[in-house]
Design a protein around this nucleic acid. Structure first.
Lengths: 225, 225
DNA sequence: TAGATTGTTAATCGATTAACAATC
DNA sequence: TAGATTGTTAATCGATTAACAATC
């Protein structure tokens, strides 16, 4: 019932070099980065194959859970053998990549600038193509190879570069406004560094990274342990 | 069965100015910052009382869910009336605060420095008391009122200031090592900005904020929508 | 009073885990 | 073959939602 049949059983099912995905549950999506990270480590160590068991102990997850996740995402495991590392990594790549995903940052405060200077995401298929802020003192200033531009340039940039992801690092009273702007310019995913619970349509994804909120959660856990 | 009785029914139960908490489920903990944020907004607008219904529509949560959460955390709701905003806020404060929680940052790269300069968490009862890095070019440099110190000063700082939270912003191959160090110096909660899945004992809380991972999750959701 | 709001008990839903049948 | 690994079906667990009884 809750299982979806990803094959068309009525025809010549199991064409095996097609990977399968539709609407991965949110819980699975949150484990994907750990799998990718681990597979990249194996590749850098020239390990050729792995198994659900190995991955589960290495990542501290349930063995059946890993088996189900990998089956959902790749489905190319072989009994008695396991998974080919490169093949599995490739299926994860297909899951994530559209091509390189262009991003912008709106809000060039301390956090925004710190993020802009951070290079880590280039390795993962993301490219920062614009940094925006309305503060006159910041406009024109260079962050890495990008010049900070005023917010009225956001629209142009989004259209020209087909920007899909927007990072919001403005003060919280401007967050919803910037969010609406991003959505109207075609952005589909938002990384929200403010404490505001953004109001967005169903087809827009939001991930919140509010440092104060995370610290609050840690404090609660610390206190009750 | 899954409900715990927070009162001692055998005695003169319901001493009503005691707030109740023990082992809040993780799902509830993750909603706490939203409640706090909303309550602070009400206070700034001089709103005196509120109800589960209002909060649920305002935060986009289920009404019963809010009622259960508030009952668990405060339990001072009155039928036909709702909750007194200040009283409720106070119970949330008790839930979170031990007093001011001291924190350190290890790793003064772009992100670490950006975080160190960010002032937002001071308002929420957290205080940054140290920034550390082993890079000779960074040691001695000032970030806000703090001087960046070498990692061998971490221990002293943790002991002197009773540091409870550690923020890890080092390169990923040093993450576990720094984490172990923090734990051995008495830190109980870790905010991990690397992509490494940290291995910690049961009594230590970890929250991960890996930007690349979050972007990966967004990309998957965007692609399948 | 009737309506609004509370808290609780029971039902539902979704995700994880356990048990098992199949096999490069 | 026996043992290891796969994927799946069924059971369990936990969190959310629905229904309801109580009442500043």
């Amino acid at each position: 019932m809750s299982e979806i049949n990803y094959y068309d059983d009525t025809l010549n099912s199991k064409f095996s070099n097609t990977f399968r995905t539709t609407n991965l549950p949110k819980s699975v999506i949150e484990r994907v980065p750990f799998y990718i990270n681990y597979l990249d480590k194996l590749i850098s160590e020239n390990v050729l194959s792995t198994s659900s068991k190995i991955i589960s102990t290495e990542l501290g997850l349930g063995e059946v859970q890993v088996r189900k996740d990998l089956n959902l995402i790749s489905g190319k495991g072989k009994p008695k053998i396991g998974y080919n590392v490169k093949e599995l990594r490739e299926d994860f790549r297909k899951l994530v990549n559209i091509e390189t995903t262009n991003m912008i940052i709106v809000g060039a405060g301390k956090i925004g600038e710190g993020l802009a200077m951070y290079k880590g995401f280039n390795d993962c298929g993301f490219s920062l193509v614009g940094v925006f802020d309305n503060d006159i003192n910041k406009i024109g200033k260079k962050v890495c190879d990008l010049k900070i531009e005023s917010n009225d340039k956001i629209q142009q940039c989004c259209y020209d570069k087909k920007v899909l992801i927007g990072i919001i690092t403005v003060p919280k009273d401007k967050a919803q406004e910037v969010c609406n702007m991003m959505i109207s310019y075609g952005i589909k995913g938002i990384l929200n560094f403010t404490s505001v619970k953004l109001d967005v349509p169903d087809n827009i994804s939001v991930r919140n990274v509010d440092i104060s909120s995370l610290l609050t959660m840690l404090a609660i856990e610390i206190k009750n342990s």
